[in-house]
Design a protein around this nucleic acid. Sequence first.
DNA 1: ATAATTGCAAACACTTTGCATTTAT
DNA 2: ATAAATGCAAAGTGTTTGCAATTAT
Lengths: 136, 136
Amino acid sequence: MEDLQKILEAKGLKNTRQRKLVFSVLKAAEGPLSAEEIYIQLQGEKINLSTVYRILEIFLQKEIVLKTNISDQKSTYEINHSEHRHYLICIKCKKVTPISGCPLRAYETYLTQKNQYIILEHKLEIMGICPDCQNK
Amino acid sequence: MEDLQKILEAKGLKNTRQRKLVFSVLKAAEGPLSAEEIYIQLQGEKINLSTVYRILEIFLQKEIVLKTNISDQKSTYEINHSEHRHYLICIKCKKVTPISGCPLRAYETYLTQKNQYIILEHKLEIMGICPDCQNK
DNA sequence: ATAATTGCAAACACTTTGCATTTAT
DNA sequence: ATAAATGCAAAGTGTTTGCAATTAT
C-alpha cells in the first residue's frame, strides 16, 4: 500500500482511510469492479457509496484507475497498470478473464496514417463462452 | 423500408408505424444513436420515449440492431449490418467515425485456441482526436 | 488552522414497468 | 376478434451534488 501514499502525495491528494480501502480492494481484484461491488466488499468498514464514487472519479483523473463500460449500465474500474489489458467476458457466467498482450498496436499506426486521427487509447472487449460454461 | 416488413414478419412481429420510424432513423444514421437521439429526431411524429426503448430492446433480441456503450451512461444502437464495424471516437467533439474492416479476425482464432473460449463477438472502440479538433 | 474529504440526503439521468387504450393482423 | 404494441405516469437503477461535519496535513 506504500504505492498509494506516494502516488497521492505526488498529486497533492490526502491519503485517507477511505482511499486506502478502495485502492486495496481494486488491487486485490482479478478484474474490473463496479462502484457498488467495491462498496459491498467494504461492508463493515465505515464508508459511504458516494465517497466510493468520488474516490473513483479522482483516481480516474489522476490516472490511478481505468474506467470501462463492459456490461450494460454500470461502469467498472480497475487499477491502471500502465501496460494495458483486455478481457474475455463470458456471456453466460459474466466471468471476466484478462488476456495478455494487445493485438492492436500495429493497427493503430495504420489507422493514424489512414484517418489523420491522433489515437490516444482503445477499448477492446471480447465476448464468448468460457470453458466452464461450455460443459453445462 | 421493405426490408423491415419482411424481417418483422419473419419474426412474428407487427409492422407498426413506430417501428418503421425507429428503423428509418437508424438506417439513415452515420453512427450509433442513443434512444433519446432517436426520439429527438422523431419530434413531430407521435411516439413515446418508452416506446423507443421497447422497440430497441426487441430489435436487439431479434438481432436487427446492435447495442454498445461507447460513451459513459447512455447506450447506443445501430443497424446490425452483419458485416461488423468499429469506430473512431473523438474525445473532444465526440464525433463517431466508422472504420472499414476489422483487425481482429485472426486474433480471435488464436485466442480460441489459447484460452479454450468459444468466441462470439467483440467490441472495439478507438479513442483519439479527429482532424477537425486537431486544428483548434 | 485550514483546506480537502467525507457522510448524508436529496437530486439527477437513463431506463424499465404496470396498466388501460389503441392497433395490426 | 384478439393478441401484440403503445402512451402515460410512476418506479427503478446507477450516479452526482450541496452542505455541514470531519479529518489529514
